[in-house]
């Protein structure tokens, strides 16, 4: 028995990035297991009125000094309540949980594809792969692109798009990726894709990579209760039956997830 993955952390900052997005910086009060890019934490407020009741899953955004950072979008009741927590508040953490991104081989060129808040799990991967990865980052508008200066430093090449054209290319990020692949494909290049974003982005990505042999990892999101594979609440339908996003994911191969529509 070991409680290292169940710990309390103090909020040192809950910074508003724009009206809908916050960066939460947490300092664990006890020793923790080092997280790998792609892993996540169940985060709870311990509210005595049971609101929220369940913990919420958040990807690790960045491990920085002695803190853990979480980039989140305020979307429902849970994230709204968490956004109201101030400096000094104590939260209940379970993690790091789930699998992580397999690292690219030496002869593979990693491509990181983020749509909107999908940058959250990919940022620490970009940092880990500094100087090696091409980063493709799309959002609805300029205000929803975060930490571009850092990403520029991490990236071998950084490609940006916005739906409204307020920054970078106008249009979907998968179109930018498609252009890149057309220009950069050669018999000697082996691309490896890591992607996170909304479901329609995964579908366009599937249309691009399907049949090309490009290994593509996607990070999924699902409502979760336990985070450790016990409640079976967060399953995704794969070619090999239902798999728990929390335990067998959150990182999956795209062909295991989209085989049904494909």
């Amino acid at each position: 028995m070991n409680l290292i993955r169940y710990f309390k952390a103090r909020i040192s900052e809950n910074r508003q990035l724009n009206g809908e997005h916050n960066l939460l910086t947490l300092v664990p009060l006890t020793g923790i297991n080092e997280p790998e890019p792609g892993q996540f934490y169940m985060t709870g407020t311990g509210a005595c009125n049971y609101d929220p009741l369940l913990k919420r899953p958040f990807s690790l955004f960045r491990r920085k000094n002695n803190s853990l950072q979480i980039l989140y979008r305020i979307k429902g009741r849970g994230t709204s309540l968490i956004s109201g927590l101030g400096e000094g508040a104590i939260v209940d953490m379970l993690g790091p949980l789930g699998n992580s991104y397999p690292m690219p081989a030496h002869n593979e060129t990693p491509l990181i594809i983020a749509g909107g808040i999908g940058i959250a799990p990919l940022f620490s991967l970009a940092e880990r792969l500094a100087g090696r990865a091409y980063i493709f980052y799309g959002a609805r508008t300029r205000d929803e692109l975060f930490f571009l200066a850092e990403l520029k430093v991490f990236a071998k090449g950084l490609f940006i798009s916005t739906d409204d054209g307020s920054y970078g290319e106008k249009g979907a990020i998968i179109a930018v990726l498609n252009d890149f692949l057309t220009r950069h494909s050669s018999p000697v290049t082996r691309h490896l894709i890591y992607a996170c974003g909304p479901a329609p982005m995964f579908e366009s990505l599937w249309n691009v990579v399907r049949g090309t042999g490009i290994k593509t990892y996607v990070t999924l999101e699902e409502n979760m209760a336990c985070g450790i594979g016990a409640c079976l609440g967060c399953v995704v339908n794969t070619g090999d039956g239902h798999k728990s996003v929390c335990k067998e994911g959150p990182v999956f191969l795209i062909n295991d997830i989209l085989h049904i529509t494909g």
């Binding site: 929220p52 369940l54 699902e222 409502n223 979760m224 209760a225 967060c234 399953v235 339908n237």
Partner: peptide
């Protein structure tokens, strides 16, 4: 899926 959702003081 989806299989779970939180409701007031419950799921």
């Amino acid at each position: 899926p989806p299989r779970i959702t939180e409701t007031p003081a419950g799921m």
